[in-house]
Design a binder for these strands. Structure first.
Length: 495
RNA sequence: GGUCGCGUGGCCGAGCGGUUAGGCAGAGGUCUGCAAAACCUCGUACGGCGGUUCAAAUCCGUUCGCGACCUCCA
């Protein structure tokens, strides 16, 4: 099968390039996952939702994708040199792995709520200590690292002199890095150069998470896990590497250095970086406290929002901007997105109710064009805002057909079949948006009740008993059910 | 301080040399018992100042404002 051309903005080359996979029809994609030391926040959600859309889109295009997203459960250092996971453990009097499990569960729950697909493999750093030790050894053997008092450091200066690539991704110049950090040398006493970084850290006796290694008891450096796990599951060079753009430096830069330093090859052909979610114009950040949790957003229990917003409304809000742009979270924007999302969902329901009988095809072209545009925009670096714009072209068509403003008979059977098939696929399979009002177990019973109630109201209306008709409508509205009289009957939806 | 990015109509947000982004809000209309919804029409926006060009929101220079990274962060 012929797969449609896809163009990606590659952070490594800073250019938009036509995507060519290493193995035709197959894609290896690695995304840096969360560090599980506290609850996820919305910024994490935006990033992983963005990559989920990419994953979905690649699958829809017909690729076989192995999507690897790690869980970082060790190795992340705090300012004081303390492991993040250990810190969490000490504070909550839990085993480190208990902390890891707790927040991993929480992360999974939120990703489910946002209707994202599970990655093909979700490896953890602590499950790959042996491989990490091996990679440290390889880097040492290749001469790009040195041992200092039980720790192993990556020798960025030597690496750069030989390979000339350090700083390519993040646009740093190694000489600048050397001078720029000269005044904090005190914290870097073991390093030869300020830009060097630890790939293996010696552990203090009271450190909770530590392993034996050829260099003594210790734990792996943060950047190492991604180098190791991407290599293990996707090969030394794979297709796509993603992550938040705050990981570009030092994390991804160091990751590249480690891969090249151990096997001599560039880990990924295409690097994609998602931009930050802002709130009040500032980066939403756990460490700064400028944050809102998914739950607070759902319940509205936050000074930043006037009410609660459903997960899909929030997701739709995120998809209305490009993944590589910053997105400022505001109450007004959320309000607007919520309505747009509902209109989109309504159109899906309306489409399902259309009865088609073709007598012509004069409207085929515009329907097909709008449908074509969706994937065209998705294949242009996953331009979800434009793709959604073309979806709204279709919304208008569907509603016009429904209202009789456009003649549904003027599209061919073939086009109608395409509309019925692809439009819901675009929304659900590609964008991962689902109708939140469907399901819930009691909908069958509710449907029956509603049918009866609306029948009664219809009788009242037929008798011009407006008082009763309006009473029913107002009463239902208190239960968040909106009644709409259309030309041949009455519809209802949740508000 | 160094590096990079951004400033678009009331709000959010695409576009990045010439053609309608889109959503929400607002105005008018159609429909309707009323309402809601839906559909149709409408705003002529691109921080300031210069420049390049037949043509600039889109390129160049400059200036102001904002943000990100340089330290853990998606």
């Amino acid at each position: 099968m012929e797969i449609k051309d896809l163009y990606l903005q590659n952070s490594l080359t800073k250019q938009k390039e036509k995507f060519t996979p290493i193995n035709e029809g197959y894609i290896g994609m690695y995304v840096c996952g969360p560090t599980v030391y506290s609850d996820v926040h919305l910024g994490n959600v935006r990033t992983f939702t963005s990559f989920d859309i990419m994953y979905r889109c690649l699958l829809y295009l017909g690729y076989k994708v192995r999507y690897v997203r790690n869980i970082t459960d060790v190795g992340h250092l705090l300012d004081g040199g303390e492991d993040r996971i250990s810190k969490g453990a000490r504070l909550e009097k839990l085993e480190p792995m208990e902390v890891v499990q707790k927040y991993t569960n929480g992360f999974h729950k939120i990703m489910d709520i946002f209707h994202t697909k599970k990655p093909s493999i979700e490896p953890r750093a602590t499950q790959h200590i042996l491989e990490q030790i091996e990679m440290v050894q390889q880097i040492l053997d290749n001469g790009y690292a040195y041992i200092k008092d039980g720790s192993v450091y990556f020798d960025t200066l030597k690496f750069n002199e030989e390979k000339k690539v350090y700083g390519n991704l993040s646009g740093r110049i190694i000489e600048d890095l050397l001078t720029e950090t000269r005044d904090n040398l005190k914290k870097q006493d073991q390093k030869r150069h300020p830009s060097d970084f630890a790939i293996w850290m010696k552990a203090d006796p009271d450190h909770l998470m530590k392993w034996n290694s050829p260099w003594g008891e210790g734990f792996p450096g943060w950047h190492l896990e991604c180098s190791v796990m991407s290599t293990k599951y996707l090969g030394e060079t794979f297709d796509i590497h993603g992550g938040g753009n705050d990981l570009k430096f030092p994390h991804h830069e160091n990751e590249i250095a480690q891969n090249i330093g151990s096997c001599g090859c560039q880990p990924s052909n295409y690097w994609l970086h998602t931009n930050m979610l802002l709130m009040n114009g500032k980066k939403m950040s756990k460490s700064d406290g400028n944050t809102i949790s998914p739950d607070e957003l759902f319940t509205g229990d936050s000074p930043h929002v006037s009410k609660g917003y459903s997960p899909m409304a929030v997701k739709f809000f995120m998809l209305q901007s490009h993944y590589s742009s910053t997105l400022d979270l505001t109450d007004d924007a959320l309000l607007a997105s919520e309505k747009g999302y509902k209109r989109l969902m309504e159109s899906l329901k309306t489409l399902g109710q259309l009865n088609h009988k073709s007598v012509g095809n004069s409207l085929d072209l515009e329907v097909n064009e709008a449908l074509d545009e969706f994937m065209n925009h998705m294949c242009d670096d996953f331009n979800t805002p434009r793709a959604i714009a073309s979806l709204f072209e279709v919304v208008t068509k569907i509603n016009s057909f429904n209202e009789g403003h456009l003649d549904l008979a003027q599209i061919s059977d073939e086009t109608f079949a395409r509309l019925k098939k692809e439009y819901p696929e675009f929304i659900d399979d590609v964008l991962g948006l689902k109708d939140e009002n469907i399901g819930g177990g009691n909908s069958e019973a509710l449907d029956g009740v509603m049918e009866l109630v609306l029948d009664l109201r219809q009788e009242a209306r037929a008798n011009k008993d407006w008082g009763t008709a309006d009473k029913i409508r107002d009463g239902l509205s208190k239960s968040k059910i909106v009644v709409k009289d259309v030309k041949d009957g009455t519809n209802w939806t949740f508000s």
